[in-house]
Nucleic acid binder design. Structure first.
Lengths: 346, 346
DNA sequence: TTGAAAGCGCTAACAA
DNA sequence: TTGTTAGCGCTTTCAA
């Protein structure tokens, strides 16, 4: 004894310290602390000592020799965006319940996403959740090169061997349009985000499908795409819509809530009342939606649910559950509020 | 040679593989890859081999033997809250530029915050950023027990040896009130969050100081506190304010934008026009503020700046810069929008 | 059931 | 300038 491995001196107590105090070998201590074969008495004693010393296993050492480090990384386009913030929050909660940590990285452009994936060195993460805006080959390659179980949030070419949790944007837009039609809308405009993104593409598809289903004509003059899924980028797009369509629409579907807010603003400035003269529906059902005046009808695409599901799927796969990795889809839900319900005009 | 450490077989190439291929010892390879003493020729050759093999240093192994792992943890009350989301995003950007990763954890209650701090085992992080809502002794103790450089975002008893970056809530509220007074407001109500939080306490102080400075009386009937800094919690509080004050106020300062939105809603429902009958100012200058209708005047308390500063301070201290750890304060900035400017009534 | 020893990938003495 | 050796904390053979 007294080999210099006294606890508390330089740093936290190690398993060596625990073993010493308990009077067993390091190997036995290790076994006692995990499931492994150790006599009940020994196990009990070691555990007691460990607790008294405040022993915390060193995740780094454990990871080094092949184990897991208890960390999951998540790559989102923009952590400040309310949708991704909620997703991130949900993932973190789920991981915390499993005593794991969450690494958050941000990347938008395919090249950056690929780089971000590659930036996680060997052993540093047990799993990966990626939210790609644009699922280009670059990203898919990087995903394949990742050495850890991966779940993608967002649609993915079906060839991929990774897990995936998607929103059903198409169905979401259809929900919105069916609702607007039921409210009596005839000419429904659509303000999209960039069409080269997965959400942009899917939502446009949903728009066309829903119009078809409702027996309405597709009029290109009623469709615009903002350069980005943001409020700022949407403002000029909606200005353009007003002009191009000669204000002939009676409802607007926005590809997300931020764009819907831009619509509310432009309409308000143009003296078009919502919902009196024009109905508006957003998507994502951000917390903003219920706070707006008029409160915003929005399609909940399940940001939180997607985060939770992705985390659960990843955790299950880490636990070795065979059928853990799958392709799940969250069913959208329409939340009706003031902006789309024609009642009394204020 | 051919000792079984061939590259690419089981896992990524290690420094051993690089050394072998380059025909040098592992130590030399290590030295060549870092600054250390190695002949220019050797260094060059090793670096080339490393690149060809796609060698990535194993951060975990490096951390194990006492180095740094390149990870910073951040603990926020709620990652979904737009303010903390922005802060987190800013921190992440700053860290990424220094090639470090960000771990995000969420905890509100002091006990949970303390636990969250303790959950980071030895060697797993190089530094820590904490955003405590309530700086109770429990949290301070946990902070002191942390073995890594720490920066606190939010005010802290000055005894602490950690870095700190604070908002000047007091000055922020004063900015708001001075502005309202300049707009002609006489009876300014204040809708606060919980007073046992640091922001809650400071903002209330600022309110009283500013009233004093403006020569206005403090009327308890004009002050309410929501149970939480959220929209939902603020609604009943503002209802109570209307009742209690007999609607005798002509302006409202809200402790944050979410509460301000609640005010807009309650006022709207009560038929009180903003800014016509009542001016409203929020705090935090969330992205929501510019999106609202009427757009919301708000005091920018520098969420992003605080995140950036905290990260910079932490990084500097990790670099060993002596005077890195300090107590900084971000100066608030009033952003005037429609909700507080009496012009034409719509 | 337990202990001794090897080794994960890396850096840092210490020698040569 | 380079190589040899030890060791970070842990798990895991392999013997006893």
């Amino acid at each position: 004894m007294a080999l210099g491995a006294e606890q508390g001196m330089a740093g936290l107590p190690t398993i060596t310290a625990v073993a010493q105090v308990a009077g067993v070998s390091v190997a036995t201590a290790s076994r006692a602390l995990h499931g492994g074969g150790a006599s009940a008495a020994t196990a009990e004693r070691v555990r007691l000592v460990a607790e008294q010393l405040g022993y915390r296993p060193n995740a780094v050492a454990r990871a080094l020799q092949g184990g897991t480090i208890g960390q999951i990384a998540m790559i989102v386009p923009d952590a400040a965006n309310p949708v991704y913030a909620r997703m991130t929050s949900a993932v973190q909660h789920e991981l915390a319940a499993d005593d794991r940590h969450l690494l958050v990285a941000q990347a938008q452009d395919p090249a950056d996403v690929a780089a971000a994936i590659g930036r996680f060195g060997p052993s540093t993460i047990d799993g990966l959740i990626v939210v790609p805006l644009r699922p280009e080959p670059q990203v898919l390659e990087a995903l394949d090169a990742a050495r850890v179980p991966t779940v993608v949030i967002g649609s993915l070419p079906l060839t991929a061997v990774h897990g995936a949790v998607g929103a059903d944007s198409r169905a979401g837009v259809q929900l919105a349009i069916d609702h607007l039609v039921a409210q009596g809308a005839q000419r429904i405009a659509f303000v999209n985000g960039p069409v080269d993104t997965t959400p942009g593409r899917m939502r446009l598809e949903g728009y066309r499908l829903a119009l078809d289903a409702a027996g309405l004509d597709f009029d290109p003059a009623l469709v615009v795409a903002a350069d980005d899924f943001t409020h700022a980028a949407a403002l000029p797009a909606i200005d353009a819509l007003l002009e191009r369509s000669a204000r002939s629409f009676d409802a607007i579907v926005a590809a997300n809530d931020l764009i819907a807010f831009a619509a509310l603003r432009v309409l308000s400035d143009a003296g078009i009342a919502v919902p009196g003269d024009c109905l508006v529906v957003g998507m994502d059902d951000t917390e903003l939606a219920q706070m707006a005046i008029p409160s915003l009808t929005s399609v909940d695409l399940g940001a939180e649910a997607r985060g939770t599901l992705a985390a659960q799927q990843l955790l299950a796969s880490l636990r070795g559950e065979a059928d853990a990795i799958s392709h799940a889809t969250v069913v959208p839900r329409l939340v009706v509020r003031e902006s789309s319900t024609r009642r009394d005009r204020p």
